[in-house]
């Protein structure tokens, strides 16, 4: 269901603070040894008021240095984290691809993992039966279907995860660093799926350090720095600004 107003994602003043304990106290002993001492927390602000909208069918890039809050933002969009404050509205089904994957179980083989993750992302048994071969074929893992995931290379896991993420029913795809460990051949396949998503009117939120790819595919781009939206606008301008700021530092 597309929102009538043509907005896929809208965020208003998103904040996210993580409480970082000075010392991790996860055992009773540590609490008993210092019963009077309250655990001290450092508030680490990952996002400090980020507002933007992504239109339906838009390809939206998110760039910024390491630790700028890109992954945290994506996890909030995917409802994995709850924002400390702010407003988030998502219209449509999401398919998340976060931290190089969809959360595989290393002790199960590809078949079982596809079954689990496909189900979690909304596929029925019938749909899974129909799409299973496509998922494996796209990931080029036909020979390794019965191999446990712990014996997969990171490239193989990435291909499988991406293959699942694009085969489930979605309106909005969240991609976090999908190009980081794949080889050239796989990157080409990713780009081919981008073209298809474009034709189908899907929305993409694309987090990447690959500025070439961002420039090529994203309509608009958000530059994050220290949890703040430094710039939002046409991709070329935002990338230019980012390059300048990187050089200055």
């Amino acid at each position: 269901m597309r929102a009538a107003d043509g907005i896929a994602i809208e965020t208003v003043d998103l904040h996210k603070d993580f409480r970082l304990p000075h010392e991790q106290r996860t055992t009773f002993k540590e609490h008993f040894l210092h019963p009077l001492k309250r655990t001290q927390y450092d508030a680490n602000t990952a996002l400090a008021g980020v507002s933007f909208t992504v239109g339906t069918g838009e390809f939206f890039g998110v760039i910024g240095p390491n630790g700028s809050g890109k992954s945290t933002l994506l996890k909030i969009l995917a409802r994995i984290y709850q924002p400390t404050s702010g407003h988030l509205r998502v219209s449509g089904a999401l398919s998340p691809f976060i931290e190089l994957g969809v959360g595989f179980n290393p002790d199960l083989n590809a078949r079982d993992n596809v079954w689990i993750n496909g189900t979690l992302l909304g596929l029925t048994r019938k749909q899974l039966r129909q799409r299973f071969d496509d998922i494996i074929e796209f990931a080029e893992l036909e020979r390794f279907v019965d191999l446990k995931l712990k014996n997969y290379s990171s490239g193989m896991q990435l291909r499988l995860a991406y293959s699942i993420a694009i085969q489930v029913p979605f309106d909005i795809l969240l991609l976090d660093e999908v190009l980081a460990v794949g080889d050239l051949g796989f990157q080409q396949k990713c780009f081919a799926t981008f073209e298809r998503m474009r034709d189908e009117g899907k929305t993409l939120v694309f987090v990447s350090h690959d500025l070439e790819a961002v420039a090529q595919y994203c309509d608009r781009t958000l530059l994050l720095e220290n949890g703040v939206a430094r710039a939002i606008g046409p991709t070329d301008e935002v990338i230019d600004l980012y390059r300048v700021r990187e050089m200055v530092q």
Binding site: M1, H15, T84, H87, L88, R89, S91, A93
Partner: peptide, 22 residues
């Protein structure tokens, strides 16, 4: 400080119950 998260999806309640059962 308050946080609000809205998610509108195509799933109806019975669909989403069937999904969770799966």
């Amino acid at each position: 400080m308050s946080a609000a998260v809205e998610q509108s999806e195509r799933r109806s309640l019975s669909n989403s119950l069937a999904h969770q059962a799966r």
